[in-house]
Design a protein around this nucleic acid. Sequence first.
DNA 1: GTCTATACTCTGATAGAC
DNA 2: GTCTATCAGAGTATAGAC
Lengths: 204, 204
Amino acid sequence: MPDLDAQRTRIQTRNRQAILDAALEAFSSNGYAGVTIDRIAEGAGLSKPNVLYYFPSKEAIHHALLDGLLDLWLAPLRDMDPDGQPLDEILAYVARKLDLSRRYPRESRLFAHEILQGAPHLAPVLGGQLAALVADRAALVAGWMAQGRLAAADPHHLIMSIWALTQHYADFDLQVRAVLGPGHDPFAEAGAFLDRMYRRLLTP
Amino acid sequence: MPDLDAQRTRIQTRNRQAILDAALEAFSSNGYAGVTIDRIAEGAGLSKPNVLYYFPSKEAIHHALLDGLLDLWLAPLRDMDPDGQPLDEILAYVARKLDLSRRYPRESRLFAHEILQGAPHLAPVLGGQLAALVADRAALVAGWMAQGRLAAADPHHLIMSIWALTQHYADFDLQVRAVLGPGHDPFAEAGAFLDRMYRRLLTP
DNA sequence: GTCTATACTCTGATAGAC
DNA sequence: GTCTATCAGAGTATAGAC
């Protein structure tokens, strides 16, 4: 069943998407408990019972949003090329991850909420899929460092530092803008700052 | 009225503190909407009406927790000494901020929730007190860089990078531990990693 | 100061007409 | 497929006894 939408009418597809979009908007800024089905319905332009016609419960909507989120989130790390130039690969990874924060701030905040709350849905995946991918990539980076093609640094914490820094610009956007004041482009400046930072940190 | 507790009995002082502690525990992991007064009461070992005897509303409890949080949070930045050695001052700041994350992870998460939700209570302070302090410290750092005592970098983004990295270890503790696996001391490793990182980044 | 009992509101979910 | 009506439960807050 590769395309579930094939079994749905155009209206169904559109409404499902409208619900998910409204729910993402709501959950990402207010957390799971801070959102009512009524508000999702309003955002989607539907009635509350109609929302519950498309999803069996509020919980199901939330679950549908989290599903696949980790894949989106880890794609840039997966895309690191073992055969590329080490420094270029890291810098490209940073740029891709920052771009993800810029383009998907709501998804970033949804993820942040989930982790803050103890990851009731994602916990198993964190210790499994996530830890495995990071271990794999950390080994790759450690290899580059051992060959002297990158300056030495703890690979796990290096990868996590990239997450922390890039996601900060999405999750704490409000604070970032308050600190920078008007007339700034936080993501553009962050791109330049982070490129210089990791270049200097990792150049052998 | 410097000491409000002077007007309270010992029992009142103790119960107020128990309520605030239970509320901090609850709010920091579940967000404002995800917490019921019942749960706070249970955590404090009191009945629900009794909690509402000490605070007029759930909202008031939350407000009491946020009050003064920013002061605690910004203290390390305030403590940067303009007359110290630039690199030492920055590294000491990083260490103090990381120590704050280690000792007060619940406060860090409470702050994260507040910002994620659009800072309904802190918004005015962010654009005022916070922005002013950062501007002041950024100017100090920029001066050091202009004198060639630190390598050049955007001072605002430098300060924010320190926030992002140190708070990540508190806010995303669950993810950090999942990635590192058992047998690690995330904060100790972070201390070493961040010290090397900023030393390398800022050494002229 | 603390408890029991309760009023009142909001929210998730269902039933059933159309 | 979508709506109106409604139920059941949870949650904030208050009243009033002790």
